[in-house]
């Protein structure tokens, strides 16, 4: 049953991806990419990765769709038709895909209890968390406590990204600069007069 659900979800995702590649109307593309994210979130739920599914649904399907729509409102609604040959891009995509598939051959089988992650890291956390942190959600315990430094770095990354976008787009810098330029101009005027 789970395999059936997985195959169904993957099939819809592939269909979404193909439609995204084909459609020129960007509004439909953005909506489809939101649907793609939601399907990915469902896949994470079937993998029991609820925290990741949560993030994917909220960020991928929610916020980024809104931001993409905002971008469309600032630019154009239709993708420009491309007249270049698509041979080289196709070759690159096929090669990358082949490399990725080749990479999966070395990966442990899905749900394999002998996989490396299930050998020492996982059991150790399962043993230590109830004693040391005593929080039922192990993901929170690992992210916030054992990996506190990493999460601090992540928050710093989000902070930097936010500051960057605010500085680039919202024109705060321009507002701050304008009075100075005016003041300089008036100085110059005074000097020349």
């Amino acid at each position: 049953m789970e395999i059936l659900i997985n195959i169904l979800l993957f099939a819809i995702m592939v269909a979404c991806a193909m439609a995204i590649a084909k459609i020129r109307h960007l509004f439909a593309v953005v909506m489809l990419s939101g649907a793609f994210s939601l399907l990915a979130a469902l896949l994470f739920v079937t993998l029991d990765a609820v925290d990741v599914a949560f993030t994917e649904a909220a960020v991928g399907a929610g916020i980024s769709t809104v931001l993409m729509l905002g971008t469309i409102a600032l630019t154009v609604r239709r993708e420009k038709p491309s007249y270049r040959s698509s041979f080289v891009p196709l070759l690159v995509v096929i090669l990358t895909g082949a490399v990725l598939v080749y990479g999966t051959l070395d990966m442990p089988n899905f749900g394999d209890p002998n996989a490396v992650v299930h050998q020492h890291v996982g059991p150790e956390y399962i043993e230590r968390i109830p004693k040391e942190v005593d929080v039922p959600n192990f993901v929170t315990a690992i992210l916030a406590s054992y990996r506190g430094f990493d999460t601090l770095g992540e928050v710093a990354v989000v902070f930097t990204a936010g500051i960057g976008v605010v500085l680039l787009l919202s024109g705060l810098g321009a507002k701050a600069r304008r009075p100075k330029i005016l003041a300089q101009n008036s100085d110059n005027n005074e000097a020349s007069s």
Partner: peptide, 17 residues
Amino acid sequence: AVMIAIYYAFAARPPRI
């Protein structure tokens, strides 16, 4: 706050559509 700030930054620009 970052999400709201990014949204404000995008939405504050005059739209072309």
